[in-house]
Computed example of a mutant assay.
Amino acid sequence: MTTSIQIFRGEKGRCLKAHGIFILLFTDVFVQNVNGYMTSPHVGQDPPYSRDAQYSAVISSPLVPAAASASPTGMDSYASKCPSGGLCSKLPAHCISCSYHHNCSYGKPASFSCKPKRGVHCIGEADQQQQTNFSLTVTCQFCWQLDASQYRCNTSTSCMTVSCPRQRYNTTCNVVDHVHCIGKRKFQKRLYCNWTGGYKWSTALALSITLGGFGADRFYLGQWREGLGKLFSFGGLGIWTLIDVLLIGVGYVGPADGSLYI
């Protein structure tokens, strides 16, 4: 029994001694690495870029011509709609850049210095050579002072055309492409309500004369209540029919939606 205890104690001592030697060796290696790193000249400095990091920095650098690759897309928005090779004076307004001045006489011709936008090519009238700068003669007036045929406006269908006083509405107008003027080509304007729903005055008058006693004219104009009243009263015994013929003939009675006749 005593011999077994001594053998067990001997084996336990050898195991503890082996673990102690391993711990001492690991501690020594760790201390040497820490001392070597602390004495290194890289301590306190930014770590050098790896190869992958340097490559990614070059790709995201502003020196890469990203704007150049995107410029054709922005240029195509107007260059595709601008004719190239024609006369400079015939180019649409969105294809050229002009230095307009306001010291001209209203309603009289004035010359302005212009140049085609990037990607647009044009020639002069005299020498038939490509021009980078040219002179354009334009009538001295602002865009909102143009004739109504030279701009297009958004039409409102929510106002009444037949009212007293006449109703107006605010809308946005855009100048036609080949018309040149001073100022913004997109402007606000207050116009009279003059839209139409497609009703014909001649059709309404013909229905009033022929079938007015049955309310056909009122039904055509979208006035269902009045049409039913005329239908069940036989045109107000003919009196209502004659009155409607006069009212539609002079244009006093119009479509129920408030629009104008065609």
Rank of each mutant, 00 (worst) to 15 (best):
T157E: 14
M160T: 15
F134C: 02
Q130S: 03
E125S: 07
C140I: 05
L146M: 09
G119T: 04
P109G: 09
L91I: 10
S135F: 00
N133P: 00
A126K: 10
Q145K: 11
G107Q: 07
F112C: 03
S105E: 10
Q128N: 08
S89W: 00
A126V: 07
S89A: 06
D127N: 06
F142I: 02
T161P: 05
K108H: 11
V162A: 08
N154E: 14
Y151H: 14
V162S: 11
A126F: 02
C143E: 06
C164Q: 07
I123C: 00
T137D: 12
E125H: 01
C164H: 05
K108G: 01
A110C: 15
G119V: 05
S156W: 05
V120C: 10
H102N: 13
Y151I: 08
V120H: 09
C153T: 11
T157I: 14
I123V: 15
L136H: 09
T132N: 10
P92C: 12
H121A: 11
C104A: 12
D147G: 14
C143G: 04
H94Q: 12
K90S: 14
N133Y: 05
T139Q: 12
D147E: 13
I123H: 07
H101F: 09
C143P: 07
F142M: 10
F142C: 01
A93K: 13
S149K: 15
W144L: 04
Q128C: 00
T139L: 14
H101I: 00
M160P: 09
L136T: 02
S113Q: 11
T139Y: 06
N133I: 00
W144C: 01
T155Q: 15
H102V: 03
V120L: 09
C159D: 12
G107M: 04
C143I: 05
